[in-house]
Design a protein around this nucleic acid. Structure first.
Length: 220
DNA sequence: AACTCGGGGCA
DNA sequence: TGCCCAGAGTT
């Protein structure tokens, strides 16, 4: 298992690789960010941004999403996929915001996660990006990277990955950490083709060293 | 713990 | 043209 020192080394190296890693979703306010992150499940930020560019001109408030038919909302977000579930969740989400929070997006992870369509990952992203709450959002990229590097065990659940990261990373670095790991996972430590041969983290990476040894054996 | 939703991106 | 995916809800 990696030490805190190793992880700090890894995060510094990743920051050198991706100095401007940050949330790529377009958002002018917490409500728009919340909608954008809910829509982003299982599709790229670029695709979400393509949809929200027009969506946010048409829908400004929770009331706006409830003012149109479900079919109309589905049509407006259809190009991102999973649109039936997401449109229903957004309507429910907006109802809850109006009922329980007077139309204002709550600013804690706990309150956010209770909203429809909002899981732990979405709650953490919104809390940290919109409200500056210390949080580490663990998506498939972060999970894969943490497990490959050896920050946690392969069998760990997403929740365990998050807890381990929070334990081993200083709190003031939490909000930066998930963006760094997401970028690293997306562009370098890819699911199918990790680029270990050019990776600055190789010296501390459990999976990377294993792969390089296999490469050497294959040559012999 | 496994299954479902889904159009778009990419090999 | 077929495979996979920046999650969350349901069973």
């Amino acid at each position: 298992m990696l030490t805190k020192k190793d992880i700090n080394f890894a995060l510094e190296k990743i920051e050198e690789m991706f100095p401007d890693a940050e949330c790529e979703l377009v958002h002018d306010n917490p409500f728009e960010l919340l909608i954008a992150v809910v829509l982003s499940a299982q599709c790229t930020d670029a695709l979400v941004n393509k949809v929200t560019k027009d969506l946010f001109k048409k829908y400004k408030t929770p009331e706006d999403y409830l003012a149109v038919s479900l079919e109309e909302l589905q049509h407006d977000i259809r190009s991102i996929g999973l649109y039936r579930n997401k449109s229903k969740n957004i309507r429910k989400l907006c109802e809850m915001l109006i009922e329980e929070y007077d139309g204002v997006v709550p600013n804690t992870k706990e309150e956010l996660e209770k909203l429809a369509g909002v899981g732990r990952k979405t709650a953490n992203v919104v809390a940290s990006v919109a409200f500056g709450v210390p949080a580490i959002a663990v998506d498939t990229h972060v999970e894969r990277v943490a497990k490959r590097l050896g920050i946690c065990r392969w069998k760990d659940s997403v929740l365990e990955v998050e807890k381990t990261l929070m334990r081993k990373v200083p709190k003031e670095e939490w909000s930066n950490t998930h963006h760094r790991l997401i970028f690293f996972g997306r562009y370098h430590c890819k699911a199918k083709s990790p680029q270990c041969d050019t990776c600055p983290l190789l010296e501390i990476c459990r999976e990377g060293q294993k792969r390089m040894k296999q490469m050497e054996k294959a040559v012999e």
